[in-house]
């Protein structure tokens, strides 16, 4: 049996999908209304899954007292109430699709010291979700 623990967080951010190496017409064709130059926003739900042995002294894979401040520092402080294109360095050169946001959040969280990061899953809206596992990230 394998155990994992998943914690869910929320952040609100704006973005615009635009690839600078494509023409305006191509950007419009590919990204549609997501290419609106003024951007738009979402309430993102972020699920962070960690795995590892359960410490018998605490009954925990990871203490939320460690995980919550780590996610706050590494991700939420940088992403919540921000414009992802303008304010997150990674997205100056990478289109902030939620696929790429997943990958960037995985990169930021993989150094969590108390347990192994197994999966990052993001709901961009209640109808769209994206996820990346440790095997896919590697």
């Amino acid at each position: 049996m394998k155990l994992s623990l998943t914690r869910r967080y929320d952040f609100a951010a704006s973005h615009r999908l635009h690839a600078p190496n494509l023409s305006d017409a191509e950007n419009q064709r590919i990204y549609g209304k997501c290419n609106n130059p003024y951007g738009h926003g979402h309430n993102y739900a972020l699920e962070v899954t960690v795995t590892g042995p359960v410490d018998p002294a605490t009954g925990m894979i990871a203490n939320l007292g460690d995980l919550d401040p780590f996610v706050e520092r590494e991700v939420l402080a940088a992403f919540d109430q921000k414009n992802l294109n303008e304010e997150v360095a990674e997205f100056r050169s990478t289109v902030p699709t939620t696929e790429n946001v997943c990958r960037e959040i995985f990169r930021r969280l993989q150094s969590f010291p108390a347990a192994r990061l197994e999966r990052v899953r993001i709901e961009e809206t209640s109808k769209n979700s994206f996820e990346i596992g440790a095997e896919e990230y590697a």
């Binding site: 049996m1 394998k2 155990l3 623990l5 914690r7 967080y9 590892g52 018998p56 009954g59 108390a114």
Partner: peptide, 22 residues
Amino acid sequence: SPNLFADCTAGFASTNGAGKRA
């Protein structure tokens, strides 16, 4: 709660909730 869950899946041998944190 809606913001916290644990998954138990068929995986490697049972740890029976024991084992030391790495």
